[in-house]
Write a protein that binds this DNA or RNA. Sequence first.
RNA 1: CCCGGGGUCGCCAAGAGGCCUAAGGCAGGGGACUGUAACUCCCCUAUUCGCAGGUUCGAAUCCUGCCCCUGGGA
Length: 378
Amino acid sequence: MFSFELQAICGQARAGVLQTPHGPLPTPVFAPVGTQATVKAVEPRELSELGATLVLSNTYHLYLRPGDDLISNLGGLHQFMGWHGPMLTDSGGFQVFSLGALRQIDNDGVTFRSHLDGSTHRFTPEKSIQIQHHLGADIIMCFDECPPPLDRAVVEAATARTHAWATRCLEEHLRSGNLEQQALFGIVQGGIFPDLRAESAQILTALDLPGYAIGGLAVGETKPQMLATLDQTVPLLPSNKPRYLMGVGSPEDLVNGVSRGIDIFDCVLPTRVARNGSALTRHGRLNMRNLQYATDSAPIEDGCTCYACTNFSRAYVRHLVKAGEILAHQLLSLHNLHVLLTLMREMRAAIIDGTLPAYVDEFLASYRPAGQKAQAPR
RNA sequence: CCCGGGGUCGCCAAGAGGCCUAAGGCAGGGGACUGUAACUCCCCUAUUCGCAGGUUCGAAUCCUGCCCCUGGGA
């Protein structure tokens, strides 16, 4: 279980397959985020139809509500949410820091207040692993501290803590005897500081975990800083194990990540942005509220084969968005996930064909990142 | 016809002589969103207060006339 086999390598990029208890997971792969045991506005059936293979869910949220023991008693997270493919749970570290009010960090763990009712809770590395055992995802994550990436002193302290916690996570995981059901991934921290990243990678790889994540990116640094950190950090991770870039990303981030040797991504962006009325396309982002789409009979994205694009006009989608209709969330989430999942499939094929560099060049040449207005080709 | 009430941004609505080149909300226009606190956040949107005069150093605010809504009575 959890063997990782590389099928092809193209530059730094790899195409592989990770074996999980819920089936083989071809990489590179993008995982839609289902924080509260649901990918918002998307049915598991639709996820399958979109070709999603890995779904991320969340320790912090499910611990607070409905409770990890409840989920465990009902047969685990797969059964509970009706997703029967590979699944990954985040450790709760990121959420404790981004959501939990009045958090107090010490070397043993974190005390925080629930964002739901203000009640006080405490996560330790052991607790996070125990919760993740209850949930039962195929891939579970070490409890880490995700600091703002630019403040060296803060990053240094957080990285040291993350290392100590990783050891405790592994010990707790070993104690559980769950090694055949769940793979525990480590998380490299270090912000944008090469020496801290190197130290982090070295300490964590020594634990010989079945996979490694790069954490602490896309949280405030610039794109060039993120790419430089990837360029520097990825080669320090074992090449025979999956590499996971946490919380990323946008279409261009996926392309840049895959070409730098990342195997797994997750991101709320496609579904969150969908709920706020934006469409991702392979040329850039479209704000579907814009007046220019009011009478536009073209699909969201020309040539797209998703359900939203093959059945509805921009004018209709804009109407749904403006009217605050739930279907707007559904159609845009579907489309945005389709764009990213298709992108990943195409890149995987290009790696196997050995044509990834050309694919990447072509993609980036016609892509305008958010902030620069995308063309809306007719 | 008589007696009241009212006319401030597309809609609702503060304001009652100088702080009004007029609050706020909605709608509208634009932007944001990267290990998710879905339906959020940020920016923009009336030199003008029914119309015309007048009083005043100064009027959306006071006075006069007219127009238009609205309640009651003939």
